[in-house]
Amino acid sequence: MEHHIVLRVIAKFVIPMILLFALYVQFHGDYGPGGGFQAGVIFAVGFILHALIFGIDHTREVLHLQTLRISAALGLMLYLGTGIAGILMGGNFLDYSVLSADPVSGQLLGIFLIELGVGITVASVMLTLFYIFARP
């Protein structure tokens, strides 16, 4: 689709907005609908749109498959690490109240971190699946 100039121009406007909306859904999940799962999917969709318009080879250069493999694992490790940090700081596994001096801010920090972990893993895995299915 590289000769479709309208699509290319519009995509350049839309893709940053999709990524920004994904970040909004990620970090606004505490107050409205949303969270790591939805944000990860929307973030991946931004890159998939890039791949559809500019060709998947360009997208692979922007974001390597190798990077995605590592970040998919890192997201889950961030989740597990938050849980283990709870044990190390004297609580139970995935008990966020001990992460900070104040239980409520500890909960907020823990929820923030694990939602971030979920988002990273979901976005990476979805993009990995697309990369592999689109051109194994």
Partner: peptide, 15 residues
């Protein structure tokens, strides 16, 4: 009060 998160779905799901 326990989590400080207004969206109950998020607090149940994540905490």
């Amino acid at each position: 009060q326990e989590t400080g998160v207004p969206n109950m779905v998020t607090s149940v799901l994540a905490s």
